[in-house]
Amino acid sequence: MTQHVVEVEELVKVYPAARGGEPVRAVDGISFAVASGEFFGFLGPNGAGKTTTIRILATLARSTSGAATVAGLDVVRDAAAVRSRIGLAMQTVALENMLTGRENLELIGRLHGMPAGELRRRVDELLELMNLTAAARRLVGTYSGGMRRRLDLATALVHRPAVLFLDEPTEGLDPQSRAAFWEELVRINRAGTTMFLTTHYMEEADRLCDRLAIVDAGRIVVEGTPRELKRSVGADAVEIALAHLDGAESLAAAQALALTRLAGVAGIVSAEVSAGGIAVGVANAHAAVPALLRELDGNGLGVTGLTMREPSLDDVFLRYCGRHIRTEEADRPLETGW
């Protein structure tokens, strides 16, 4: 029998209506389980309910209905016990700037009641792991963004949690730091820590997660390994850039003509306009390209570029949610209080 470190059953969180608004069902009946040692993730756009789910699991928010256990403990009834078994790294880095890196780690370790000797060894180990040993005695206020991220992650690990909750952990990192941070996360997971990650970066979910759930509007839309999910889309994508004069009308005309021409072609799963041309979904890109070129190049149309790619998680998202994941929304209410 597989040991489940996180189990969530029909979780619902309704936020009361803001002035003149409707109540918001941030989490709308979510169920899932994370096995011990697994790297599990939620992939979805902002406002999908990812953060709310993590906040409930980390005992920071109460669910409206449904049940959740972490390490076999109920997150409401046994909240205190849950807190000593989880590590938490949220979207915004939460550190004390006027303490040194070492002091930040020691503070959290002491709050977890770790004995002084063990804590010192653990802090040394984490500073080494996160490549922060040289900066350990400097005030955190002087740290770079990447260093702050790594130290924040270290504070979540001091007490050797059974499960690590990561809410958009690489938000605001440059690509290089992000890649380095991913390495850390993989290493931590390999060392035995169960991971639950939320992200709206497809590459991040693809790269890190053993298994993931795509969430949208408070619900799990589909769940599986990244491979399974991508295969379920069943199509490769072919991006075709079309020759056109300056101006939107010329492009639109070319796109419309191209789509009509493809209407009768066999093996095409989907076709839609994209920036600068059209995007075509086909069962097998390598086999389909010659036919596509025959149809589209000539007779008043011109192909100026062509790229093929295997399905990405964005295609998966598009397939199951009917839109792209990158539709950013200003979903955070301004928190002025008054």
Partner: peptide
């Protein structure tokens, strides 16, 4: 900055 949450998630 979320530090309060970090403390609240501690035992």
């Amino acid at each position: 900055n979320g530090y309060l949450d970090k403390l609240r998630a501690s035992p």
